[in-house]
């Protein structure tokens, strides 16, 4: 369970996040919706340790937790970026296994045993040797998901998972997220796509643009 308490953040004196309070329970899908510029990405970045907050507290299973702390090993928050940010110089397999190998020190056998099933589950079996430029948008997104899941995060967070894809892929994305939910993955979906949020989310949190 992750709780955000009284999160505040402003840029150059302009408040973007104004006293955000929300809770996400294990196994849930939480959608964070709101118009463009409302601060959804800012919130996600704070949660992922990519941006700081001015005040407030983040709790993981009731204990204070600092996503920016460098002694965290497993990435508590896995992030699927809006344009995926795959490493173009690495194959699918290398993209997904780099951090488990270097950070979690997983052995070769452990990688085979634990990562292969993730790839298979995400319909990436047989694609291990391909480079990102050889993949379709949907495949890139699934590699990004696999890469985040391989680090066994407590929560998987997506920034606008449908925005970089063809509209016809929306159903696929929602099925994929619901599928992961069945496996018990806790997910946060930042989106301006209200329809998607309605379809998949257990809980919808609205961020309003502050004027």
């Amino acid at each position: 369970m992750i709780e955000l308490k009284n999160i505040k953040k402003s840029f150059n004196g302009r408040p973007i996040l104004d006293d955000i309070n929300l809770t996400i329970n294990d196994g849930e899908i939480l959608a964070i919706v709101g118009p463009s510029g409302a601060g959804k990405t800012t919130l996600l970045r704070a949660l992922a340790g990519l941006g700081d907050i001015d005040s407030g507290e983040i709790l993981l299973d009731g204990k204070p937790f600092d996503p920016r702390s460098s002694d965290l090993k497993n990435n508590v928050i896995g992030v699927v970026f809006q344009d995926y940010n795959l490493f173009p110089n690495l194959t699918v397999w290398e993209n997904v296994t780099l951090a488990p190998k270097m950070v979690l020190k997983m052995t070769k056998t452990a990688l085979e045993n634990e990562i292969k099933p993730i790839l298979t589950h995400l319909k990436l079996a047989g694609k291990e040797g391909l480079y990102p430029f050889e993949l379709s948008g949907g495949m890139k997104q699934r590699v990004a998901i696999a890469r985040a899941l391989a680090m066994k995060p407590s929560v998987l967070a997506y920034d606008e998972p449908t925005s970089a894809l063809d509209p016809s892929m929306r159903t696929e994305v929602s099925n994929l997220l619901l599928d992961l939910k069945k496996d018990g993955v806790t997910q946060i979906v930042v989106t301006h796509d209200i329809e998607l949020a309605d379809k998949i989310a257990d809980k919808i949190f609205r961020v309003n643009a502050i004027s």
């Binding site: 990435n75 992030v79 795959l86």
Partner: peptide, 16 residues
């Protein structure tokens, strides 16, 4: 910058 950010959330060190 996204390359650095992706590496960061994967907990890779700056040197790695």
């Amino acid at each position: 910058i996204g390359q650095y950010e992706a590496a960061k959330v994967l907990r890779l060190t700056p040197w790695q």
